[in-house]
Design a binder for these strands. Structure first.
Lengths: 232, 232
DNA sequence: TGTTCGTCAAGAGCAGTGCTCTCGATTTCT
DNA sequence: AGAAATCGAGAGCACTGCTCTTGACGAACA
């Protein structure tokens, strides 16, 4: 946040923000495919080529929106976890899951941008990864806390991960300090299961199948918690 | 397949097939967004407007490709299950999972079309549902067989689904004859978990996280099986 | 056998897209 | 004050899905 010095820098920052705001509104209503630089320019009363002074390409604008969306869902999850009883680990998992689902239902197109099919020809730059792991970091903290408190006891329902996966487990452990490999992969299963459910629900796979989706979601994430060993 | 009567009908069927073939190739290389009617026409040596004699709009062509893709993954799963020992229910689940993942890795854009973000402005017509449930039907049969054989015993790791979900469970049971509600929702959790994992892997969520993804996938689907009660 | 009718490919054209380049005008820095 | 950087406007390129009209061809009917 360097204080904008010149008037030109101030108006530039202002316009950049206005562009992303309008683009975010367009994204929310039309989806990623309907995001049009010309339409943004039109709404701003500018000519389309002027947008390129602020974003060198449509993909760069998309990147800005993606980072914003990652931060939004990350913040939603962080805030939800902050309200939960830190020692009630199952409760924290459940609130976390519902926070993810609620945010996704409220921002379907942005969710699709993050966890749906990658937009064709678009390559997410490194800049996004920092924001991308905020939600996963919260989840990892819940697991690590539960393990540290001895509140997680994975049931013997499946074999241990083979030793060859120790390296991959180590990477995950950078967010999940001290957790043994078995729980790491149980947690990974739960995490992907959570997003699998939300994606199925959002992308229409549950049409004509489930009606009371909130309740079914709750049952599913409790199953995933139980599979991890997060007791009822 | 009514035998094509007139020569005109025969050449029409031929050209329709050629259009979908070229479109499928384009889809495989460029993705859904890169599917261009004009490019298809160009490759056929036709003029773009002629395509509209065969497909009234781009979306109709897309629908044809979606149905093809659903049938392709459904058939892959059916064939995989046919090779497995019918009484080894865990083994059937594992081969089924690997068939899904293998097909998805071999046809990433088509998988994204089916299980990724819905393409903007496109509404899947009723015609697709028949093909859409082929893979789920195989899975349901595995679960139903396992239950009938007494080979599935869900561990008490999570509470039973509430009675309010009985109606939704009944709908799922149309593919999963005789299976009690508890197992229905455990199965649903496993099924969404499977696709959640595949989507995460395909859509880049595992970048910089997992390297030995085949092995990790195997661990995950075994966890999901254990959560259902499909013994090791 | 000849004629009418339906089907077809071609072409022009419309409105829209992302993006590039140039040209003046304005602001900032030296 | 002059040089340099920045900016919006406009024209233009190549592309998209889609519509409409025109002329040719094949099939069925008289």
């Amino acid at each position: 946040m360097t204080a904008a010095r010149t008037a030109r820098e101030r108006v530039r920052a202002e316009l950049t923000r206005e562009i992303t705001d309008i683009a975010r509104r367009q994204l929310a209503t039309e989806g990623a495919g309907g995001l049009s630089l010309r339409a943004v320019a039109r709404e701003m009363g500018m000519v389309s080529s002027a947008i390129y002074r602020y974003f060198p390409s449509r993909d760069d604008l998309l990147t800005a929106l993606i980072i914003d969306a990652y931060n939004a869902i990350g913040e939603a999850v962080e805030q939800a976890d902050a309200t939960a009883d830190p020692t009630d680990h199952l409760g924290r998992w459940l609130t976390l899951c519902h926070a993810v689902r609620d945010w996704a239902l409220a921002h379907p197109h942005e969710y699709a941008l993050l966890y749906g099919s990658p937009v064709p020809g678009y390559q997410a730059p490194e800049t996004t990864v920092e924001a991308a792991v905020r939600d996963a970091a919260v989840f990892s903290r819940v697991v690590a806390d539960a393990y540290a408190a001895g509140a997680i006891a994975p049931p013997p329902i499946a074999p241990d991960p083979p030793a060859s996966l120790a390296g991959d487990a180590e990477i995950v452990r950078s967010l999940m300090a001290g957790v043994p490999d078995l729980i790491v992969f149980r947690a990974l299963t739960a995490w992907t299961g959570l997003f699998g459910w939300v994606s199925f629900e959002l992308f229409g796979q549950f049409n004509n199948v489930l009606t009371d989706r909130a309740t079914a979601f709750d049952v599913a994430v409790r199953n995933l918690a139980g599979q991890m060993g997060l007791g009822q």
